[in-house]
């Protein structure tokens, strides 16, 4: 799976939870998770479960940190690393 495909999938999942319309593109540094993010911790869990299901990966709780999951770009990189 290419980085672009991962990005598009994650973007679609975020839009679904954030109730964002399909036509709008989210920027690479769009704050998804964290204190400044658009999703609260409960929705963050829902996003993580969807990511695990969509990409067939398991995220450990010690991997839940700002560096891995703060915005679209970091989430994409993180998934890419997990898939490698």
């Amino acid at each position: 799976m290419t980085r672009g495909e991962i990005h598009n999938s994650v973007e679609a999942l975020v839009k679904e939870l954030y109730h964002q319309e399909d036509g709008v593109n989210l920027a690479e540094n769009f704050p998804v998770l964290g204190p400044d993010g658009v999703l609260d911790s409960v929705l963050a869990l829902q996003l993580l479960l969807k990511i695990e299901e969509r990409f067939g990966i398991v995220v450990n709780d010690d991997e839940i940190e700002r560096e891995n999951l703060a915005n679209l770009a970091s989430i994409t990189k993180f998934i890419e690393r997990k898939l490698a």
Partner: peptide
């Protein structure tokens, strides 16, 4: 605690 701590706790619950 902070956002990331709450998030980790929720993940631990799910696990």
């Amino acid at each position: 605690g902070d956002y990331w701590h709450r998030f980790r706790v929720l993940k631990q619950l799910q696990d």
